[in-house]
Design a binder for these strands. Sequence first.
RNA 1: GGCGGCAUAGCCAAGUGGUAAGGCAACGGUCUGCAAAACCGUUAUUCUCCAGUUCAAAUCUGGAUGCCGCCUCCA
Length: 474
Amino acid sequence: MSLRVYNTIERKKVPFEPVKPGKVTMYVCGPTVYDSCHIGHARSVIVFDVILKYLKATGLDVTYVRNFTDVDDKIINRANQLGVDSREVAEKYIKEFYQDMDALNIERATIEPKATEHIDKIIALIEILLEKEIAYRIDGDIYYSVDKFKDYGKLSGRKLEDMEAGARVEIDERKNNPFDFALWKSQKPGEPYWDSPWGKGRPGWHIECSAMSSAYLGETFDIHGGGKDLIFPHHENEIAQSEGAFEKPFAKYWVHNGFVNINHEKMSKSLGNFLLIKDILKSYHPDSVRLFLLSNHYRSPIDFTDKAMEESESALDKIYYTAKRVDDIADIIKKDITHYQQTYWEKFCEAMDDDFNTAKGIGYIFDAVHHINRLLDENSNSDEIKSIYADIRKMGNVIGILSESAETYFNKKKTKFIENKDVDPALIDAMVKQRFEARKAKDWKKADQIRDKLSGMDVIIEDKPEGSIWKFNT
RNA sequence: GGCGGCAUAGCCAAGUGGUAAGGCAACGGUCUGCAAAACCGUUAUUCUCCAGUUCAAAUCUGGAUGCCGCCUCCA
């Protein structure tokens, strides 16, 4: 088993060999906390959550750092709009981030540092860059001089000359090069500030990640991740800062996830089509959000539509149904596995080893589900069922589905439907019971009448030897 | 202007040289009083088009067409 990862900086899949065998250090750019999280944030966080879970499942010891950018123009603007302190804004949205991400079954990172709590580290790093004359000072501002870093552009594959032709950059006459970026910004009235050797001010956007990654993971670490949009300028600038200061390779593997479109359109502020996680979770189960987002390769774009989400819900039902079938057979649940085969798990790992091919991996979950259903239908060897079921749970854990018991899952679904449609479950139960009696008396006409009535209420009946169960047609 | 990506069934989608995973939907069959669920089977002789390399191409090369992203804050 050997993991291969697409490395943005090499533009190809390469064998994954961590700096220290058996240990993985991973830094992922977290949110700027000035607004609620949308489905795009969810994709990024889920993708790296699955990478984390998979690496851990294969026995690697992962140190995972995901930061919060809690000081930034956007936060300050928001605070000014609302007439509150920028710290309040940051705190509010950090809290929301956790609510959304906990709901999505996202594991906490090992370390979740905030920029404002690492100002000393940031200042120390800027001082190194000043000392090396890679950075320069204009009054209270410090800029990074991109001309001093010969590899500038190596991640995003662009050359400074080419970009100048594009000329979509605001010209600041004070800068040596239009692409020079701020490491430290002097305080403007009403802005939060920290004391520094250059006066009161605050850090630029990129410097915090260089400072915090080196503080927690060292000057060289394994995986650096984030959304594709961060490749330029954010990650390019991080490389310039860290490699400029430490003269050591920065991140070994650059992993970037693709975007989420909404109904074939780019999600953007101007279109006003941002879908918030908390709103999506009102309509869809967190597991189906994960299943949906992971059913495409993480580097490809994915199109969020209600139709696609409904299909994911159906697909998820299928998995939970099978889980329920197994859970309902006490003989199987109690029994120990005598021959654990891990066939599906091994296939799943093969898929995941190929640049985290979750879509392919999910295919094996369905293969396993299918296999179990067949065995259950045939009433055959419970040991094999249990073995495959163990694989399903293992694969599900990595994907982050089957987060609750099948019973809870279906009960929750019912509850949600009852709330939305305002129906009386006691009435349904009574009707189902009535119908069951009618069937016992072989009064098929009455039984069918009741079923038709229930069907009109979007209730579907499943007759089992021990009684009838019902569910909503969602 | 510069850089990059994508095009696979009705829809979503995996597949980067060896003869098209999986999901959703649909249609037959088994089961069932009838259903539902599950199972069995069917649904792309073919992967946008053209040319080339090869014993062999959805996969590699060249070209055409179409769609999209980044270069400005964005996951």
